[in-house]
Design a protein around this nucleic acid. Structure first.
Lengths: 249, 249
DNA sequence: CGCCTTGTTGACAGGCTTCAATACTGGTGG
DNA sequence: CCACCAGTATTGAAGCCTGTCAACAAGGCG
């Protein structure tokens, strides 16, 4: 309850609040207000942009859960990430089609920044453009961690690691605590992110529950023995740190 | 032979040559010349920056093969990518330690662009800064493809896909043809990139050879039946396309 | 209430790893 | 020039981890 209400009405509000917590001067604020930015809302399980579209915008998630994935001809898909509040999606790549899809999982609202507006940011506010680059670098850190997860950790550890990661990110976004968080993901969605089958994810969740480490049931992740889980997954949450806007000065 | 000689003496030269092929006006060229950039050379198997270092530079590979990887406490490692000529490495993330290592595999030369110089680029040449962002977006496309590879393709297809990808990238960089390319990677390095053991990589290479698809021996990748290999791996090389500098205008 | 999605469990098969042993290759020094 | 050595490549056998197939339960929404 109330988690979805964690939402800002303007991009400025989003950037100034958790998890980004930027501090702007008047010039920055003026620059932001001059930008052509729209707040868009999506119902659950709706596509924002599709594999093959020529995307010319960057999105900053405002509220809700989404996912970025790649569909394969075989019918399988690989989920790259579950962006939450403050996460950027959709780096542009001119004259090249996008090779991933961005869709909502829950109700979701995002700020869409057009290519044109992004160029304007670069010109008008180096501080702002640095900040956006930092946000993008953070998304890259997620990708690297997910790659490591798939390549070099077994199913149990991999599952534990993702539950921990999303827990920290949810907490950063004001949607959870050390004890746990609401997680709308199905076991199929977890499987598509973890490179496993939903059946095996189910087994791993049971195992984690039976070892009294973490329980994921009824849309709630409950950390029972978080230190033990961190140890099992060799989880180091520093990679999730937000490269603060203010650190650029 | 001669492959390593595919090398530029200045960043301008690198950006104007294959695979980037940027076209600059006088102002851009002036901007580049004003930047504090150094060309660095590394012997084989030398670390450029290490996991845990506070990296404040961006690197653009000039010649040779390198690799970006993450070491795990278990002793395993996951290789994220093998950057070649024209590939960028090391997105900055202020006040956050780096969670990957960048090392050479062969002799390697790279242009190091300091944080300070990068900020200067953003201010002085929107065209240049757009171009660098495009290069970074391209690296992200590689990560996404590698994630898909690990998550949703079996060992044989995965191996085939990587051989094809590096082939196209080598060709873009002027180091190979449709027929094949020189590849200095050991089976251990391939394994660390593919999330497999070197032993299994060996078996998969044999399988690909016995199916008369591709032969990787003695440091040379030889495409025997490239269309067949492309079909097996469901390889679509468009994700490797260079978002041309010139497409930004 | 009934349907459809999601979750759960068991048995079995198969892919990949592990362990172990041997051959090859390129560089080094006698 | 050849012997040696360390790193790399190759192969076999056995076992575990994860996928596949199948069936049923539970939960949510009309």
């Amino acid at each position: 309850m109330g988690f979805m209400s964690n939402e800002s009405k303007s991009l400025l509000g989003l950037l100034e609040a958790a998890p980004i917590k930027a501090r702007f001067n008047d010039a920055d604020i003026k620059a932001i207000h001059s930008l052509q930015i729209s707040l868009k809302r999506y119902p659950p399980h709706t596509v924002v942009y599709n594999q093959g579209d020529a995307v010319r915008s960057v999105y900053i998630t405002n509220s809700g859960w989404g996912c970025v994935y790649r569909d394969l001809p075989s019918g399988d898909r690989q989920i790259m990430d579950f962006p939450l509040r403050g996460d950027t999606v959709g780096l542009r790549m001119p004259a090249v089609f996008n090779y991933n899809t961005y869709a909502s999982i829950t109700e979701m609202s995002v700020f869409e920044i057009s290519q044109h507006a992004l160029n304007a940011i670069v010109l008008r506010s180096p501080y702002l453009s640095n900040g956006i680059m930092a946000l993008m670098a953070r998304q890259r850190a997620f990708l690297i961690e997910h790659l490591t997860n798939l390549g070099r950790r077994n199913a149990l550890v991999r599952t534990a690691h993702l539950l921990l990661e999303m827990g920290v990110r949810a907490k950063h976004s004001g949607m959870g605590t050390e004890k746990g968080y609401s997680c709308p993901l199905t076991q199929y969605e977890l499987a598509d992110a973890l490179g496993l089958t939903a059946i095996h994810v189910n087994r791993m969740l049971r195992e984690l529950r039976e070892q009294n480490l973490v329980a994921f049931r009824y849309g709630e992740v409950e950390f029972i023995n978080r230190p033990g889980l961190v140890r099992l997954a060799n989880f180091d949450e520093n990679y999730l740190a937000m490269g603060m806007f203010t650190d650029f000065k």
